[in-house]
Amino acid sequence: MGLFGGGNSAAAAAQSAAQLQMAEQEMDAITDLFNRLVSTCNKKCVPNKYRDGELTKGESVCIDRCVAKYMEAHDKIGKLLQEMNAQQGGQAPV
């Protein structure tokens, strides 16, 4: 690690480790978001009685709208959390 990556001091290594950790956390957060999105839109749009293995037209349209609405809600809640944070210097519980 860092062999071709420029400066090799302990400080650079620590920065690099922190950067890698942040990138990994971001990936984990996106995967978690995606899994919850799939679970929610599955519940909202696909009844769990199965007559065949294809998505119907109606289910497909519902899924697309569900994804759009889910992401819109995610953005709004993100802004809400930022506002609360700004107001209170607030922290996550625990």
Binding site: A29, R36, T40, Y70, A73, H74, I77, P93
Partner: peptide, 13 residues
């Protein structure tokens, strides 16, 4: 991040 993702899931639900 868990709180944030959990909030979206719960409130959309």
């Amino acid at each position: 991040l868990r709180l944030y993702n959990g909030l979206t899931e719960k409130c959309v639900g």
